[in-house]
Write a protein that binds this DNA or RNA. Sequence first.
DNA 1: TTGCTCCTCACGTCACGTGAGGTGGC
DNA 2: TTGCTCCTCACGTCACGTGAGGTGGC
Lengths: 276, 276
Amino acid sequence: MFRIGEFAQIAQVSTRQLRFYDQIGLLRPCHTDPQTGYRYYAIRQLPRLNAILALKDLGLMLDQIGPLLDDAISSEELRGMLLLKRADAEHAIRTGEQRLRHIESRIAQIDRQGAISGYDVVTKSLPPQPILATRHTVADLEEAGTLVAAAAAAGWVALRPAHRGNLIVVARNDPDSDRLDLTIGYTLTRSTGRTLTTQGLTFSPENLPAIDIAATIVRQGTNPESHVAFGAIGTWIEANGYAVAGPSREIFLEPVLELPGFDKALVEIQFPVSPA
Amino acid sequence: MFRIGEFAQIAQVSTRQLRFYDQIGLLRPCHTDPQTGYRYYAIRQLPRLNAILALKDLGLMLDQIGPLLDDAISSEELRGMLLLKRADAEHAIRTGEQRLRHIESRIAQIDRQGAISGYDVVTKSLPPQPILATRHTVADLEEAGTLVAAAAAAGWVALRPAHRGNLIVVARNDPDSDRLDLTIGYTLTRSTGRTLTTQGLTFSPENLPAIDIAATIVRQGTNPESHVAFGAIGTWIEANGYAVAGPSREIFLEPVLELPGFDKALVEIQFPVSPA
DNA sequence: TTGCTCCTCACGTCACGTGAGGTGGC
DNA sequence: TTGCTCCTCACGTCACGTGAGGTGGC
Protein backbone atom coordinates (compact mmCIF):
# COMPACT_ATOMS: atom_id res chain seq x y z
CA MET A 1 0.00 0.00 0.00
CA PHE A 2 1.23 3.45 -0.91
CA ARG A 3 0.29 6.83 0.37
CA ILE A 4 -0.98 9.26 -2.23
CA GLY A 5 2.37 10.98 -2.71
CA GLU A 6 4.29 7.80 -3.46
CA PHE A 7 1.62 6.50 -5.79
CA ALA A 8 1.56 9.81 -7.60
CA GLN A 9 5.32 9.67 -8.04
CA ILE A 10 5.24 6.16 -9.46
CA ALA A 11 2.52 7.04 -11.94
CA GLN A 12 3.87 10.51 -12.75
CA VAL A 13 0.67 12.33 -11.91
CA SER A 14 -0.10 15.03 -9.32
CA THR A 15 -1.64 14.22 -5.96
CA ARG A 16 -4.37 16.72 -6.80
CA GLN A 17 -5.19 14.65 -9.85
CA LEU A 18 -5.51 11.49 -7.78
CA ARG A 19 -7.76 13.25 -5.25
CA PHE A 20 -9.86 14.54 -8.12
CA TYR A 21 -10.21 11.07 -9.65
CA ASP A 22 -11.26 9.82 -6.22
CA GLN A 23 -13.81 12.59 -5.93
CA ILE A 24 -15.44 11.86 -9.28
CA GLY A 25 -15.31 8.13 -8.61
CA LEU A 26 -12.96 7.34 -11.46
CA LEU A 27 -10.21 5.85 -9.32
CA ARG A 28 -11.03 5.17 -5.70
CA PRO A 29 -8.09 4.42 -3.43
CA CYS A 30 -7.96 0.84 -2.26
CA HIS A 31 -8.47 2.03 1.29
CA THR A 32 -9.25 5.32 3.01
CA ASP A 33 -8.54 5.72 6.69
CA PRO A 34 -11.81 6.86 8.25
CA GLN A 35 -9.96 8.63 11.05
CA THR A 36 -7.42 10.68 9.13
CA GLY A 37 -8.88 10.62 5.62
CA TYR A 38 -5.51 9.39 4.33
CA ARG A 39 -5.82 7.61 0.99
CA TYR A 40 -3.95 4.34 0.48
CA TYR A 41 -3.40 2.93 -3.00
CA ALA A 42 -2.40 -0.58 -4.00
CA ILE A 43 0.09 -1.03 -6.80
CA ARG A 44 -2.56 -3.16 -8.51
CA GLN A 45 -4.48 0.02 -9.17
CA LEU A 46 -1.72 1.22 -11.47
CA PRO A 47 -3.10 -0.56 -14.56
CA ARG A 48 -6.43 1.19 -14.12
CA LEU A 49 -4.72 4.55 -13.74
CA ASN A 50 -2.65 3.83 -16.82
CA ALA A 51 -5.79 2.94 -18.73
CA ILE A 52 -7.31 6.25 -17.66
CA LEU A 53 -4.25 8.20 -18.77
CA ALA A 54 -4.06 6.34 -22.09
CA LEU A 55 -7.71 7.03 -22.89
CA LYS A 56 -7.45 10.63 -21.77
CA ASP A 57 -4.55 10.98 -24.16
CA LEU A 58 -6.84 9.95 -27.01
CA GLY A 59 -9.00 12.97 -26.23
CA LEU A 60 -11.76 11.19 -24.31
CA MET A 61 -13.35 13.08 -21.46
CA LEU A 62 -13.17 11.72 -17.93
CA ASP A 63 -16.89 11.01 -17.70
CA GLN A 64 -16.62 8.80 -20.78
CA ILE A 65 -13.66 6.90 -19.43
CA GLY A 66 -15.40 5.64 -16.29
CA PRO A 67 -18.16 3.64 -18.03
CA LEU A 68 -15.60 2.43 -20.56
CA LEU A 69 -13.36 0.89 -17.92
CA ASP A 70 -16.29 -0.61 -16.07
CA ASP A 71 -17.20 -2.47 -19.26
CA ALA A 72 -20.46 -0.61 -19.64
CA ILE A 73 -19.47 0.11 -23.24
CA SER A 74 -19.08 -2.36 -26.10
CA SER A 75 -16.06 -2.31 -28.36
CA GLU A 76 -18.43 -1.34 -31.17
CA GLU A 77 -19.39 1.79 -29.27
CA LEU A 78 -15.77 2.48 -28.40
CA ARG A 79 -14.90 2.21 -32.07
CA GLY A 80 -17.58 4.77 -32.83
CA MET A 81 -16.22 7.13 -30.21
CA LEU A 82 -12.73 6.74 -31.57
CA LEU A 83 -13.88 7.50 -35.10
CA LEU A 84 -15.36 10.74 -33.81
CA LYS A 85 -12.16 11.49 -31.94
CA ARG A 86 -10.15 10.81 -35.07
CA ALA A 87 -12.22 13.38 -36.95
CA ASP A 88 -11.73 15.84 -34.08
CA ALA A 89 -7.99 15.24 -34.10
CA GLU A 90 -7.73 15.69 -37.86
CA HIS A 91 -9.72 18.87 -37.65
CA ALA A 92 -7.56 20.16 -34.81
CA ILE A 93 -4.42 19.51 -36.86
CA ARG A 94 -5.80 21.37 -39.87
CA THR A 95 -6.88 24.27 -37.64
CA GLY A 96 -3.44 24.31 -36.05
CA GLU A 97 -1.68 24.40 -39.40
CA GLN A 98 -3.96 27.20 -40.48
CA ARG A 99 -3.13 29.14 -37.34
CA LEU A 100 0.56 28.56 -37.85
CA ARG A 101 0.34 30.03 -41.35
CA HIS A 102 -1.55 33.05 -39.97
CA ILE A 103 1.14 33.62 -37.36
CA GLU A 104 3.97 33.22 -39.83
CA SER A 105 2.45 35.64 -42.29
CA ARG A 106 2.08 38.18 -39.47
CA ILE A 107 5.70 37.77 -38.47
CA ALA A 108 6.79 38.16 -42.07
CA GLN A 109 4.63 41.26 -42.32
CA ILE A 110 6.31 42.84 -39.31
CA ASP A 111 9.72 41.96 -40.72
CA ARG A 112 8.86 43.57 -44.04
CA GLN A 113 7.17 46.69 -42.78
CA GLY A 114 8.63 47.09 -39.33
CA ALA A 115 5.15 47.86 -38.10
CA ILE A 116 1.62 46.60 -37.79
CA SER A 117 -0.57 47.05 -40.79
CA GLY A 118 -3.81 48.92 -40.27
CA TYR A 119 -5.69 46.13 -41.98
CA ASP A 120 -6.93 42.93 -40.48
CA VAL A 121 -8.16 40.12 -42.62
CA VAL A 122 -11.00 38.08 -41.16
CA THR A 123 -12.66 35.04 -42.65
CA LYS A 124 -16.42 34.62 -42.48
CA SER A 125 -19.09 32.70 -44.27
CA LEU A 126 -21.65 34.71 -46.16
CA PRO A 127 -25.28 33.79 -46.91
CA PRO A 128 -26.82 34.25 -50.37
CA GLN A 129 -27.43 37.93 -51.02
CA PRO A 130 -30.22 39.32 -53.21
CA ILE A 131 -29.23 42.53 -54.98
CA LEU A 132 -30.60 44.88 -57.62
CA ALA A 133 -27.78 45.89 -59.89
CA THR A 134 -26.59 47.15 -63.24
CA ARG A 135 -23.72 45.47 -65.10
CA HIS A 136 -21.15 47.06 -67.41
CA THR A 137 -17.57 46.79 -68.52
CA VAL A 138 -15.17 49.67 -68.14
CA ALA A 139 -11.69 50.37 -69.45
CA ASP A 140 -9.93 51.70 -66.37
CA LEU A 141 -10.31 52.70 -62.76
CA GLU A 142 -11.21 56.29 -63.58
CA GLU A 143 -14.13 55.19 -65.72
CA ALA A 144 -15.06 52.72 -62.99
CA GLY A 145 -15.21 55.52 -60.42
CA THR A 146 -17.48 57.61 -62.60
CA LEU A 147 -19.75 54.66 -63.30
CA VAL A 148 -19.99 53.63 -59.64
CA ALA A 149 -20.84 57.20 -58.66
CA ALA A 150 -23.54 57.44 -61.31
CA ALA A 151 -25.06 54.04 -60.57
CA ALA A 152 -24.94 54.64 -56.83
CA ALA A 153 -26.77 57.94 -57.24
CA ALA A 154 -29.36 56.52 -59.64
CA GLY A 155 -30.10 53.55 -57.42
CA TRP A 156 -30.20 55.71 -54.33
CA VAL A 157 -33.09 57.82 -55.60
CA ALA A 158 -34.90 55.05 -57.46
CA LEU A 159 -35.01 52.43 -54.69
CA ARG A 160 -37.33 52.77 -51.73
CA PRO A 161 -35.28 53.18 -48.51
CA ALA A 162 -37.17 50.31 -46.88
CA HIS A 163 -35.87 47.92 -49.55
CA ARG A 164 -32.46 49.39 -50.12
CA GLY A 165 -29.52 47.96 -48.21
CA ASN A 166 -25.89 48.86 -48.93
CA LEU A 167 -24.16 49.87 -52.09
CA ILE A 168 -22.33 46.85 -53.53
CA VAL A 169 -19.82 46.46 -56.35
CA VAL A 170 -18.93 43.05 -57.76
CA ALA A 171 -15.77 43.05 -59.86
CA ARG A 172 -15.11 40.28 -62.35
CA ASN A 173 -12.06 40.03 -64.55
CA ASP A 174 -13.00 39.75 -68.20
CA PRO A 175 -10.62 37.09 -69.53
CA ASP A 176 -11.11 38.11 -73.20
CA SER A 177 -10.03 41.68 -72.72
CA ASP A 178 -8.35 43.82 -70.12
CA ARG A 179 -11.61 45.58 -69.35
CA LEU A 180 -13.20 45.40 -65.91
CA ASP A 181 -16.63 43.79 -65.63
CA LEU A 182 -18.54 45.59 -62.86
CA THR A 183 -21.89 44.84 -61.28
CA ILE A 184 -23.05 47.84 -59.28
CA GLY A 185 -26.17 48.00 -57.18
CA TYR A 186 -27.71 47.74 -53.75
CA THR A 187 -28.29 44.81 -51.46
CA LEU A 188 -31.98 44.21 -50.87
CA THR A 189 -33.52 43.84 -47.46
CA ARG A 190 -36.63 42.39 -49.13
CA SER A 191 -36.44 40.43 -52.38
CA THR A 192 -37.90 42.01 -55.46
CA GLY A 193 -38.45 40.49 -58.88
CA ARG A 194 -38.68 43.79 -60.70
CA THR A 195 -36.30 45.28 -63.22
CA LEU A 196 -35.96 49.05 -63.01
CA THR A 197 -34.62 51.57 -65.48
CA THR A 198 -33.60 55.02 -64.38
CA GLN A 199 -31.22 57.69 -65.71
CA GLY A 200 -30.33 55.43 -68.62
CA LEU A 201 -29.22 52.55 -66.36
CA THR A 202 -31.06 49.23 -66.08
CA PHE A 203 -31.06 47.56 -62.63
CA SER A 204 -31.94 43.86 -62.62
CA PRO A 205 -32.47 41.57 -59.64
CA GLU A 206 -29.76 39.01 -59.03
CA ASN A 207 -29.00 36.59 -56.23
CA LEU A 208 -25.34 36.53 -55.26
CA PRO A 209 -24.40 33.01 -54.16
CA ALA A 210 -23.42 32.15 -50.61
CA ILE A 211 -19.68 32.07 -49.87
CA ASP A 212 -18.33 29.32 -47.63
CA ILE A 213 -15.11 31.09 -46.79
CA ALA A 214 -14.71 34.76 -47.54
CA ALA A 215 -11.52 36.61 -46.70
CA THR A 216 -12.68 40.08 -45.75
CA ILE A 217 -11.09 43.37 -44.88
CA VAL A 218 -12.59 46.72 -43.95
CA ARG A 219 -11.01 49.77 -45.52
CA GLN A 220 -11.87 53.35 -44.96
CA GLY A 221 -11.50 56.34 -47.15
CA THR A 222 -10.34 57.37 -50.53
CA ASN A 223 -9.87 55.39 -53.68
CA PRO A 224 -6.08 55.64 -53.72
CA GLU A 225 -6.26 53.86 -50.37
CA SER A 226 -8.28 51.11 -51.98
CA HIS A 227 -5.52 49.27 -53.78
CA VAL A 228 -3.41 49.19 -50.62
CA ALA A 229 -6.23 47.25 -48.99
CA PHE A 230 -6.51 44.99 -52.05
CA GLY A 231 -2.78 44.41 -51.85
CA ALA A 232 -3.01 43.51 -48.17
CA ILE A 233 -5.80 41.01 -48.70
CA GLY A 234 -4.07 39.51 -51.73
CA THR A 235 -0.84 39.00 -49.78
CA TRP A 236 -2.79 37.50 -46.90
CA ILE A 237 -4.63 35.04 -49.14
CA GLU A 238 -1.41 33.81 -50.67
CA ALA A 239 0.54 33.67 -47.39
CA ASN A 240 -2.18 31.70 -45.66
CA GLY A 241 -2.47 29.00 -48.27
CA TYR A 242 -5.72 30.05 -49.88
CA ALA A 243 -6.66 30.72 -53.49
CA VAL A 244 -9.23 33.17 -54.80
CA ALA A 245 -12.37 31.27 -55.76
CA GLY A 246 -14.61 33.83 -57.41
CA PRO A 247 -15.28 37.52 -58.04
CA SER A 248 -14.58 39.99 -55.26
CA ARG A 249 -17.26 42.16 -53.72
CA GLU A 250 -17.09 45.58 -52.13
CA ILE A 251 -19.83 46.52 -49.68
CA PHE A 252 -20.16 50.17 -48.73
CA LEU A 253 -21.10 49.78 -45.09
CA GLU A 254 -21.70 53.33 -44.09
CA PRO A 255 -24.65 54.96 -45.84
CA VAL A 256 -23.12 57.36 -48.33
CA LEU A 257 -24.96 60.57 -47.55
CA GLU A 258 -23.12 62.99 -49.81
CA LEU A 259 -22.83 61.44 -53.21
CA PRO A 260 -20.43 61.02 -54.89
CA GLY A 261 -18.17 61.71 -51.88
CA PHE A 262 -16.96 58.22 -51.08
CA ASP A 263 -13.99 59.58 -49.23
CA LYS A 264 -15.27 58.86 -45.77
CA ALA A 265 -17.03 55.64 -46.64
CA LEU A 266 -16.26 52.41 -44.83
CA VAL A 267 -15.97 49.56 -47.32
CA GLU A 268 -15.77 45.84 -46.70
CA ILE A 269 -13.88 43.95 -49.39
CA GLN A 270 -14.86 40.29 -49.67
CA PHE A 271 -12.89 37.66 -51.55
CA PRO A 272 -14.30 34.16 -51.82
CA VAL A 273 -11.41 31.77 -51.16
CA SER A 274 -10.74 28.06 -50.91
CA PRO A 275 -7.77 26.17 -49.49
CA ALA A 276 -5.15 26.01 -52.25
CA MET B 1 -25.82 53.16 -35.51
CA PHE B 2 -26.72 49.54 -35.08
CA ARG B 3 -28.28 47.69 -32.23
CA ILE B 4 -26.27 44.82 -30.87
CA GLY B 5 -28.10 42.17 -32.88
CA GLU B 6 -27.51 43.81 -36.23
CA PHE B 7 -23.89 44.55 -35.48
CA ALA B 8 -23.37 40.96 -34.37
CA GLN B 9 -24.88 39.71 -37.61
CA ILE B 10 -22.66 41.92 -39.75
CA ALA B 11 -19.52 40.81 -37.92
CA GLN B 12 -20.57 37.17 -37.56
CA VAL B 13 -20.19 37.06 -33.79
CA SER B 14 -22.68 36.35 -31.01
CA THR B 15 -24.39 39.12 -29.08
CA ARG B 16 -23.05 37.50 -25.93
CA GLN B 17 -19.56 37.93 -27.28
CA LEU B 18 -20.13 41.65 -27.91
CA ARG B 19 -21.56 42.11 -24.40
CA PHE B 20 -18.55 40.29 -23.01
CA TYR B 21 -16.10 42.48 -24.93
CA ASP B 22 -17.97 45.50 -23.58
CA GLN B 23 -17.74 44.15 -20.06
CA ILE B 24 -13.99 43.61 -20.20
CA GLY B 25 -13.50 46.95 -21.93
CA LEU B 26 -12.15 45.48 -25.14
CA LEU B 27 -14.82 46.92 -27.42
CA ARG B 28 -17.13 49.51 -25.90
CA PRO B 29 -20.23 50.33 -27.90
CA CYS B 30 -20.19 53.79 -29.40
CA HIS B 31 -23.18 54.71 -27.24
CA THR B 32 -25.13 53.09 -24.42
CA ASP B 33 -28.58 54.38 -23.60
CA PRO B 34 -28.51 55.19 -19.89
CA GLN B 35 -32.26 54.57 -19.61
CA THR B 36 -32.59 51.18 -21.26
CA GLY B 37 -29.01 49.95 -21.25
CA TYR B 38 -29.30 49.33 -25.00
CA ARG B 39 -25.93 49.21 -26.72
CA TYR B 40 -25.49 51.06 -30.00
CA TYR B 41 -22.54 50.33 -32.29
CA ALA B 42 -21.19 52.42 -35.15
CA ILE B 43 -20.06 50.64 -38.27
CA ARG B 44 -16.70 52.36 -37.78
CA GLN B 45 -16.15 50.01 -34.87
CA LEU B 46 -16.03 47.07 -37.24
CA PRO B 47 -12.30 47.43 -38.02
CA ARG B 48 -11.50 47.20 -34.32
CA LEU B 49 -13.68 44.15 -33.91
CA ASN B 50 -12.01 42.59 -36.94
CA ALA B 51 -8.62 43.34 -35.47
CA ILE B 52 -9.70 41.62 -32.26
CA LEU B 53 -10.93 38.56 -34.12
CA ALA B 54 -7.79 38.39 -36.27
CA LEU B 55 -5.49 38.53 -33.25
CA LYS B 56 -7.62 36.06 -31.33
CA ASP B 57 -7.25 33.72 -34.26
CA LEU B 58 -3.48 33.87 -33.84
CA GLY B 59 -3.92 32.43 -30.36
CA LEU B 60 -3.53 35.65 -28.38
CA MET B 61 -5.59 35.98 -25.25
CA LEU B 62 -8.11 38.76 -24.90
CA ASP B 63 -6.20 40.60 -22.19
CA GLN B 64 -3.19 40.80 -24.48
CA ILE B 65 -5.23 42.13 -27.39
CA GLY B 66 -6.50 45.23 -25.57
CA PRO B 67 -3.09 46.83 -24.91
CA LEU B 68 -2.01 45.81 -28.40
CA LEU B 69 -4.82 47.69 -30.11
CA ASP B 70 -4.39 50.71 -27.88
CA ASP B 71 -0.79 50.94 -29.09
CA ALA B 72 0.62 50.21 -25.68
CA ILE B 73 2.82 47.57 -27.29
CA SER B 74 5.65 48.04 -29.74
CA SER B 75 5.91 45.99 -32.90
CA GLU B 76 9.10 44.54 -31.43
CA GLU B 77 7.15 43.20 -28.47
CA LEU B 78 4.39 41.95 -30.76
CA ARG B 79 6.99 40.12 -32.79
CA GLY B 80 8.22 38.45 -29.62
CA MET B 81 4.71 37.40 -28.69
CA LEU B 82 4.14 36.00 -32.15
CA LEU B 83 7.37 34.00 -32.00
CA LEU B 84 6.10 32.42 -28.78
CA LYS B 85 2.74 31.77 -30.38
CA ARG B 86 4.45 30.17 -33.34
CA ALA B 87 6.26 27.79 -31.04
CA ASP B 88 2.96 27.03 -29.29
CA ALA B 89 1.25 26.38 -32.61
CA GLU B 90 4.03 24.09 -33.82
CA HIS B 91 3.91 22.19 -30.57
CA ALA B 92 0.15 21.89 -30.77
CA ILE B 93 0.39 20.47 -34.28
CA ARG B 94 2.97 17.88 -33.24
CA THR B 95 0.86 16.92 -30.22
CA GLY B 96 -2.19 16.65 -32.43
CA GLU B 97 -0.40 14.41 -34.91
CA GLN B 98 0.78 12.25 -32.04
CA ARG B 99 -2.76 11.96 -30.73
CA LEU B 100 -4.05 11.10 -34.18
CA ARG B 101 -1.55 8.23 -34.41
CA HIS B 102 -2.62 7.01 -30.97
CA ILE B 103 -6.26 7.03 -32.00
CA GLU B 104 -5.60 5.29 -35.29
CA SER B 105 -3.57 2.57 -33.66
CA ARG B 106 -6.42 1.99 -31.21
CA ILE B 107 -8.95 1.73 -34.01
CA ALA B 108 -6.72 -0.69 -35.88
CA GLN B 109 -6.34 -2.71 -32.70
CA ILE B 110 -10.11 -3.02 -32.31
CA ASP B 111 -10.45 -4.01 -35.95
CA ARG B 112 -7.80 -6.70 -35.56
CA GLN B 113 -8.90 -8.12 -32.25
CA GLY B 114 -12.56 -7.20 -32.11
CA ALA B 115 -12.03 -6.17 -28.52
CA ILE B 116 -10.11 -3.95 -26.18
CA SER B 117 -6.72 -5.14 -25.12
CA GLY B 118 -6.03 -5.44 -21.44
CA TYR B 119 -2.87 -3.41 -21.84
CA ASP B 120 -2.49 0.31 -21.92
CA VAL B 121 0.71 1.91 -22.99
CA VAL B 122 1.60 5.13 -21.22
CA THR B 123 4.58 7.36 -21.83
CA LYS B 124 6.46 8.88 -18.96
CA SER B 125 9.84 10.37 -18.31
CA LEU B 126 12.05 8.56 -15.85
CA PRO B 127 14.77 10.01 -13.60
CA PRO B 128 18.20 8.37 -13.25
CA GLN B 129 17.91 5.22 -11.17
CA PRO B 130 20.67 3.84 -8.94
CA ILE B 131 20.60 0.03 -8.76
CA LEU B 132 22.70 -2.78 -7.34
CA ALA B 133 22.79 -5.57 -9.88
CA THR B 134 24.53 -8.59 -11.32
CA ARG B 135 25.08 -8.99 -15.05
CA HIS B 136 25.16 -12.19 -17.11
CA THR B 137 24.30 -13.56 -20.52
CA VAL B 138 21.93 -16.47 -20.95
CA ALA B 139 20.98 -18.67 -23.88
CA ASP B 140 17.22 -18.75 -23.63
CA LEU B 141 14.19 -17.68 -21.64
CA GLU B 142 14.22 -20.74 -19.45
CA GLU B 143 17.74 -20.05 -18.33
CA ALA B 144 16.76 -16.41 -17.88
CA GLY B 145 13.93 -17.39 -15.55
CA THR B 146 16.18 -19.52 -13.42
CA LEU B 147 18.82 -16.78 -13.22
CA VAL B 148 16.30 -14.06 -12.35
CA ALA B 149 14.84 -16.25 -9.60
CA ALA B 150 18.29 -16.98 -8.15
CA ALA B 151 19.49 -13.37 -8.33
CA ALA B 152 16.23 -12.05 -6.93
CA ALA B 153 16.48 -14.40 -3.96
CA ALA B 154 20.15 -13.65 -3.36
CA GLY B 155 19.64 -9.91 -3.47
CA TRP B 156 16.52 -10.12 -1.33
CA VAL B 157 18.36 -11.62 1.61
CA ALA B 158 21.65 -9.75 1.13
CA LEU B 159 20.26 -6.22 0.85
CA ARG B 160 18.93 -4.35 3.84
CA PRO B 161 15.19 -3.68 3.45
CA ALA B 162 15.68 0.02 4.08
CA HIS B 163 17.93 0.28 1.02
CA ARG B 164 16.22 -2.22 -1.22
CA GLY B 165 13.62 -0.99 -3.68
CA ASN B 166 12.11 -3.13 -6.42
CA LEU B 167 13.48 -6.03 -8.37
CA ILE B 168 14.63 -4.80 -11.78
CA VAL B 169 15.77 -6.62 -14.90
CA VAL B 170 17.48 -4.79 -17.75
CA ALA B 171 17.60 -6.76 -21.01
CA ARG B 172 20.13 -5.93 -23.69
CA ASN B 173 20.43 -7.70 -26.99
CA ASP B 174 23.91 -8.97 -27.56
CA PRO B 175 24.59 -8.15 -31.20
CA ASP B 176 27.45 -10.62 -31.50
CA SER B 177 25.43 -13.65 -30.49
CA ASP B 178 21.85 -14.61 -29.96
CA ARG B 179 22.33 -14.72 -26.23
CA LEU B 180 20.43 -12.41 -23.88
CA ASP B 181 22.44 -9.95 -21.80
CA LEU B 182 20.64 -9.50 -18.47
CA THR B 183 21.27 -7.12 -15.62
CA ILE B 184 19.34 -8.26 -12.56
CA GLY B 185 19.15 -6.41 -9.28
CA TYR B 186 17.25 -4.07 -7.04
CA THR B 187 16.60 -0.36 -7.25
CA LEU B 188 18.16 1.51 -4.37
CA THR B 189 16.31 3.95 -2.19
CA ARG B 190 19.64 5.21 -0.92
CA SER B 191 22.75 5.18 -3.08
CA THR B 192 25.49 2.79 -2.14
CA GLY B 193 28.99 2.54 -3.51
CA ARG B 194 29.53 -1.02 -2.31
CA THR B 195 29.93 -4.17 -4.34
CA LEU B 196 28.45 -7.26 -2.71
CA THR B 197 29.02 -10.94 -3.37
CA THR B 198 26.55 -13.52 -2.16
CA GLN B 199 25.61 -17.04 -3.21
CA GLY B 200 28.21 -16.91 -5.98
CA LEU B 201 26.72 -13.75 -7.53
CA THR B 202 28.41 -10.36 -7.60
CA PHE B 203 26.15 -7.30 -7.28
CA SER B 204 27.71 -4.02 -8.37
CA PRO B 205 26.30 -0.51 -8.08
CA GLU B 206 25.21 1.08 -11.35
CA ASN B 207 23.31 4.21 -12.24
CA LEU B 208 20.70 3.65 -14.92
CA PRO B 209 20.42 6.80 -17.05
CA ALA B 210 17.31 8.98 -17.12
CA ILE B 211 14.85 8.30 -19.94
CA ASP B 212 13.20 11.26 -21.64
CA ILE B 213 10.35 9.29 -23.14
CA ALA B 214 9.64 5.79 -21.91
CA ALA B 215 6.77 3.76 -23.31
CA THR B 216 5.56 1.72 -20.37
CA ILE B 217 3.04 -1.01 -19.77
CA VAL B 218 2.03 -2.85 -16.63
CA ARG B 219 1.55 -6.57 -16.93
CA GLN B 220 0.42 -8.94 -14.29
CA GLY B 221 1.08 -12.61 -13.85
CA THR B 222 2.89 -15.50 -15.36
CA ASN B 223 5.81 -15.54 -17.72
CA PRO B 224 3.83 -16.91 -20.71
CA GLU B 225 1.77 -13.72 -20.37
CA SER B 226 4.95 -11.70 -20.59
CA HIS B 227 5.58 -11.89 -24.30
CA VAL B 228 1.98 -10.86 -25.04
CA ALA B 229 2.72 -7.64 -23.17
CA PHE B 230 6.01 -7.25 -25.03
CA GLY B 231 4.14 -7.76 -28.27
CA ALA B 232 1.56 -5.13 -27.32
CA ILE B 233 4.16 -2.54 -26.47
CA GLY B 234 6.17 -3.31 -29.60
CA THR B 235 3.12 -2.89 -31.80
CA TRP B 236 2.26 0.33 -30.03
CA ILE B 237 5.73 1.78 -30.46
CA GLU B 238 5.71 1.09 -34.16
CA ALA B 239 2.13 2.24 -34.75
CA ASN B 240 2.72 5.51 -32.95
CA GLY B 241 5.77 6.52 -34.87
CA TYR B 242 8.41 5.81 -32.25
CA ALA B 243 11.58 3.78 -32.34
CA VAL B 244 13.21 1.89 -29.48
CA ALA B 245 16.14 3.91 -28.18
CA GLY B 246 17.81 1.66 -25.63
CA PRO B 247 17.55 -1.47 -23.50
CA SER B 248 14.20 -2.34 -21.97
CA ARG B 249 13.66 -2.57 -18.23
CA GLU B 250 11.24 -4.62 -16.18
CA ILE B 251 10.37 -3.37 -12.71
CA PHE B 252 8.65 -5.79 -10.34
CA LEU B 253 6.31 -3.39 -8.62
CA GLU B 254 4.71 -5.62 -6.08
CA PRO B 255 7.10 -6.93 -3.43
CA VAL B 256 7.58 -10.56 -4.31
CA LEU B 257 6.92 -12.23 -1.00
CA GLU B 258 7.07 -15.87 -2.00
CA LEU B 259 10.16 -16.36 -4.12
CA PRO B 260 10.38 -17.60 -6.83
CA GLY B 261 6.58 -17.32 -7.32
CA PHE B 262 6.43 -14.48 -9.79
CA ASP B 263 2.99 -15.54 -10.93
CA LYS B 264 1.08 -12.85 -9.13
CA ALA B 265 3.68 -10.14 -9.56
CA LEU B 266 2.85 -6.84 -11.19
CA VAL B 267 5.57 -5.83 -13.59
CA GLU B 268 6.12 -2.56 -15.39
CA ILE B 269 7.91 -2.88 -18.70
CA GLN B 270 9.76 0.26 -19.78
CA PHE B 271 11.08 0.90 -23.27
CA PRO B 272 13.06 4.05 -23.93
CA VAL B 273 11.80 5.47 -27.22
CA SER B 274 12.38 8.43 -29.48
CA PRO B 275 10.29 9.79 -32.35
CA ALA B 276 11.25 7.80 -35.45
C1' DT C 1 -51.61 44.06 -28.35
C1' DT C 2 -48.24 40.75 -30.13
C1' DG C 3 -43.73 39.44 -31.41
C1' DC C 4 -39.15 40.53 -31.48
C1' DT C 5 -35.12 42.34 -29.36
C1' DC C 6 -32.80 43.91 -25.67
C1' DC C 7 -31.32 43.99 -20.66
C1' DT C 8 -28.95 41.98 -16.26
C1' DC C 9 -27.70 38.38 -13.30
C1' DA C 10 -25.78 33.93 -12.53
C1' DC C 11 -24.57 29.23 -13.23
C1' DG C 12 -21.98 25.91 -16.22
C1' DT C 13 -17.97 24.54 -18.95
C1' DC C 14 -13.19 20.99 -18.13
C1' DA C 15 -9.65 19.11 -15.47
C1' DC C 16 -7.35 20.23 -12.50
C1' DG C 17 -3.59 24.27 -10.11
C1' DT C 18 -2.89 26.83 -6.26
C1' DG C 19 -3.10 28.60 -1.99
C1' DA C 20 -5.20 28.79 3.02
C1' DG C 21 -5.56 26.81 7.25
C1' DG C 22 -5.17 22.81 9.85
C1' DT C 23 -3.55 17.95 11.28
C1' DG C 24 -1.16 13.05 11.24
C1' DG C 25 3.27 10.26 11.41
C1' DC C 26 8.02 9.37 12.17
C1' DT D 1 9.96 18.87 18.71
C1' DT D 2 10.78 19.60 13.78
C1' DG D 3 9.95 18.62 9.06
C1' DC D 4 7.34 16.32 5.86
C1' DT D 5 3.05 14.64 4.18
C1' DC D 6 -1.55 14.50 4.29
C1' DC D 7 -6.37 16.47 4.77
C1' DT D 8 -10.54 19.60 3.28
C1' DC D 9 -12.44 23.61 1.48
C1' DA D 10 -12.69 27.06 -2.02
C1' DC D 11 -11.31 30.20 -5.53
C1' DG D 12 -9.24 30.65 -10.24
C1' DT D 13 -8.69 29.23 -15.05
C1' DC D 14 -10.71 31.10 -20.40
C1' DA D 15 -14.11 32.89 -23.29
C1' DC D 16 -17.99 32.75 -23.62
C1' DG D 17 -23.04 29.46 -23.88
C1' DT D 18 -27.28 29.03 -21.93
C1' DG D 19 -31.15 29.78 -19.54
C1' DA D 20 -34.15 32.72 -16.07
C1' DG D 21 -36.81 36.52 -15.40
C1' DG D 22 -37.95 40.93 -16.88
C1' DT D 23 -38.44 45.12 -20.13
C1' DG D 24 -38.14 48.38 -24.49
C1' DG D 25 -39.68 49.43 -29.41
C1' DC D 26 -42.38 49.18 -33.52
